[in-house]
């Protein structure tokens, strides 16, 4: 599934360079949004879908296990002498 997510990501990046709509405003989507703009709106929606796939199928394995800490925001381990 992760490979499909990466593929989707690269497709979105490629789709962004939509030179085929560069010099036209037609068709007008819903009668008023030029196609070049509508295309990029679809890329925004695609980015949301990519995020959904990532949190569902590529969620980092260890982050949910980080132990709950005290209510005042204290760390679970102290910082080193550099901080």
């Amino acid at each position: 599934m992760r490979k499909l997510i990466y593929l989707f990501f690269f497709l979105l990046v490629l789709a962004h360079q939509d030179f085929w709509w560069w010099r036209t405003h037609e068709p007008l989507v819903f009668g008023f949004i030029p196609i070049g703009l509508a295309w990029h709106v679809c890329i925004s929606i695609g980015a949301g879908m990519l995020g959904l796939l990532a949190v569902k199928y590529a969620w980092p394995a260890n982050v949910d296990e980080i132990e709950e800490q005290s209510a005042d925001g204290a760390p679970t381990q102290s910082r080193s002498e550099h901080s």
């Binding site: 962004h16 939509d18 070049g36 703009l37 990029h40 709106v41 925004s44 949301g48």
Partner: peptide, 18 residues
């Protein structure tokens, strides 16, 4: 013109979430 959306929003939609 409309190109500003592609310059900023659709790129940002992908990479901000990333």
């Amino acid at each position: 013109g409309i190109g500003v959306y592609g310059l900023m929003v659709s790129w940002s939609g992908i990479f901000h979430s990333l």
